[in-house]
Design a protein around this nucleic acid. Structure first.
Lengths: 332, 332
DNA sequence: TTGAAAGCGCTAACAA
DNA sequence: TTGTTAGCGCTTTCAA
């Protein structure tokens, strides 16, 4: 592609004028503008953002670290943030970490080499790698350090709400199927669930842990392995996809939902509406999460000091047909 | 972050040597190497990829245009391509087009300004915008021009296979729920479906068109609006999500699947396994599609002339419980 | 085996 | 209102 010098030459003016034209800085006569427009048109020129970045010492690129772009929750977050960052003229570099430390560290190096303006680290497996870099970083879910901003749903209260909803629906023998321990989000859901159960002396509670997050192929055998799963009258599953697998398994076992066993998931994935019965779940406020994350990032990039470091957004119970309880919210 | 000069200074050597060190070009004594390693360590330096790109006149960035990252089919494609491009040391810039012409054109400008090495244009709404740019572009699904490479599933044969599978399962009154006409993929599926149906004189065939691709909220009313949907003993839906909505609607209407009506979707999304009954569908070979797209892109970037412009990959029928037919493939 | 210097495309200070 | 010029961080040639 042409460069600024060729444009200037063709337009018969100096490069500074062309530069001013593109940056809206300083005066450019209408006459010059017209000449430039013509030259740009003829040579199909677009200013080189790399050269500009190198001079300005900042890019308009945000690095997005994401465990896996096929995960419905995370890809919705990305979709939301992409939209908002674009509005601020930022471009997104996408990095799939697969929850793998080494991949993530490699990606960090790449993002550093491109001198990105900021990084959103979603569910990082290697918080220490972010601690000493001179780029604004926002942690989503898994924390980086007390000095770094963390954004997440209030998974703790979400877990409480899930228990309460099942309890209110009449469940007294409740199973929580927990996600991998490395995900703070899932341990918080567990914590909330347990905490809420302590207040109800007549409820029996069990927990079983899964070590995979959402790959159906590994989920199925793990769930089929849970013994006595038919003993429970309520099951809180750590995410919607796993809940769907649980529902399917129970169906195969001849268990009626919600009459015999009530099920509540987490995430409010589009999946839940399509299942039969439709799945009660805990909604994560994705739009708000995306909004707050991008807003904070922009402020960080602008050099603002931000005192509040932790942002835990309210979840909501979405009542559908897999449970019997009334609509509750996680407010209380 | 430090620059190459500071590293050279701290190491007590010249910048050219540092450059050679990082680029493995030319000689660097072990002694110098050690000094550089130390300086890099101390200053936590990473070479500036922007400056490098500006000099080399090429970046290691690929622009990915995608209708919507929350669409399971496309995000799987992105996941696959990201992995493969990374292996070749390429970084991905993600652009959500929302099937919107203007957004897409704006993204093209951004990608051009970053002088990306190549663009994968998935389901483009504005093929003309790619025709005259001096960057390698590969079209996925919707074509750009006869001179540009196009990669896609063989949707035509996939549509044929869907009809055949329903017909072989005993269906004689078959409905095709078609996706938006602007998506070549869906019109090809329709074309294949119709073509296959012509060979079977005893089969009655209808088509109804939907104008939304996969947003459940708009899908539901559209599908509920289809009149006489219970008249059909077989329905071929243009994608799995819409098929799920159809199944749900039929269920609400008291129609038994597959006994009364058989359903086949398209995409082989993870969703299909979770539904009850599980959904028969047409698999798109995502891994191969990703592989061939990235391979072709790398070759294009390397300046290779590629004679074959069109790549339509074979689909496969995935037989599950929503149909009665035997396993068929789209080979024939 | 090394370093000085030119140049990649751009911005901005400054003089005109 | 404009153009010259230095310099952003880097690579590479070329002479040492």
């Amino acid at each position: 592609m042409a460069n600024i010098r060729e444009i200037a030459k063709r337009a018969g003016i100096g490069i500074a004028t062309v530069s001013r034209y593109f940056n809206d800085s300083g005066y450019v006569s209408e006459e010059s503008r017209e000449k430039i427009r013509k030259a740009v048109e003829e040579l199909d020129y677009t200013p080189n953002a790399l050269a500009r970045a190198i001079f300005k010492k900042n890019t308009k690129i945000i690095g997005l670290m994401i465990p896996n772009i096929t995960n419905p929750f995370f890809n919705q977050m990305v979709s939301e943030m992409e939209k908002l960052f674009r509005k601020q003229n930022y471009t997104i570099i996408l990095c799939n970490t697969d929850d793998d430390k080494e991949k993530e560290q490699f990606h960090i190096e790449t993002l550093r080499s491109y001198r990105v303006a900021g990084i959103v680290a979603m569910r990082t497996m290697t918080p220490e790698s972010y601690r000493n870099i001179d780029i604004p970083v926002i942690a989503f879910e898994n924390q980086i350090s007390p000095e770094h901003i963390t954004v997440a749903s209030d998974n703790y209260k979400g877990g409480m709400a899930a228990f309460k909803h099942l309890y209110d629906g009449g469940c007294r023998k409740i199973l929580h199927i927990q996600g991998p321990e490395v995900f703070i989000a899932t341990t918080e859901r567990l914590r909330g669930f347990i905490e809420a159960s302590k207040k109800k002396k007549d409820a029996l509670v069990d927990v079983v842990k899964l070590e995979t997050d959402f790959h159906i192929k590994s989920l199925e055998p793990a769930i089929e392995n849970i013994k006595n799963i038919t003993d429970y009258d309520g099951i809180f599953v750590f995410n919607d996809i796993s809940a769907a697998v649980v529902m399917k398994h129970l169906h195969d076992l001849g268990v009626r939902i919600p009459e015999q066993t009530q099920i509540i998931g987490f995430d409010n994935s589009f999946l839940g509406e399509l299942l039969l019965p439709s799945l009660t779940t805990i909604d994560q406020p994705i739009k708000q999460l995306g909004k707050i994350t991008t807003d904070l990032m922009i402020r960080l990039i602008n050099g603002e000091e931000i005192d509040q470091k932790e942002y835990y957004l309210k979840t909501t119970v979405i009542k559908r047909s897999s449970t019997l309880g009334k609509i509750a919210t996680s407010k209380e």
